[in-house]
Design a protein around this nucleic acid. Sequence first.
DNA 1: ATAAACTTTAGAGTTAACTCGAGGTCAACT
DNA 2: AGTTGACCTCGAGTTAACTCTAAAGTTTAT
Lengths: 144, 144
Amino acid sequence: MGYSIGQVSKKMGLTAHTLRYYEKEGLLPFVKKNGAGLRVFSDNDLGWLELIECLKGTGMTLKGIKQYIDWFQEGDSTLKQRLEMFKEQKVKLKEQMARLEKYMERIDYKIAYYNEVIAHGEKGIWDRNPGLKAARERIYGKRG
Amino acid sequence: MGYSIGQVSKKMGLTAHTLRYYEKEGLLPFVKKNGAGLRVFSDNDLGWLELIECLKGTGMTLKGIKQYIDWFQEGDSTLKQRLEMFKEQKVKLKEQMARLEKYMERIDYKIAYYNEVIAHGEKGIWDRNPGLKAARERIYGKRG
DNA sequence: ATAAACTTTAGAGTTAACTCGAGGTCAACT
DNA sequence: AGTTGACCTCGAGTTAACTCTAAAGTTTAT
């Protein structure tokens, strides 16, 4: 029910330093301290950390995340802003996913290319492997 | 056949400053200069910039990208390293894509949640909308 | 009871990746 | 001839997000 900073550090894959830094930046306004001044994280705090991970992982800055947390703390008057923020984040995320698909194609091509060159040398590679040639042209256009 | 730094800047969405910075860091070893000392980018250079974008976009640092370019310039003796690098990058990219799918679920949930709260208030939300409740439990587990 | 392990704060330092500014060259218009 | 605009180099400055240190207090294990 209550976790030390070290336990949370392990669970979330963040250093204790980073957790304190996040708190200092206003990202963890709900974390309590016990009588001795040690932080005690609740399950709810872990939920916030997962949300922070999600937003950070989809390209939001800590400042943007803090904005959301501030809105949350302001209460119901900011519901629309918060919804809007997630909608924007979803658009960005979809773009990002599309970009990664493209990158994956390019990397797959590179892997196929290097496999081919390592196996049979560079000479005559396009005649030998028309599929690779097609992939190359799909990705790079005429040039390369 | 030859592009100025300004043209490349527009084409690639990078500032001229950034392009010069990349060159200084050893990421564009093939860019030529004309008699007046102005950079002249070729189509091949644009290809390199696209690869840089791809590797950067899949989480590689500029230092890592430079490593690849150095290997490339060393010639055939580094073919295996280069293949290995792309294979590793592919693994990371797959992980990243899986992470983004998770994040998308969470964001979709948040959007559904805020839509519901804005439309009908927070009271009785779980009874009113069992699908939302199920989504919530799928994403957050027991807590929230 | 005492050592080892963990946590605290405040503040300084680091890293990656830009980002900018000053001062200068050069070609093209007016 | 002068102005405009794009380009050059060099070096300094900025930003985000950590990352670390020191000195002190707390908890846990023997």
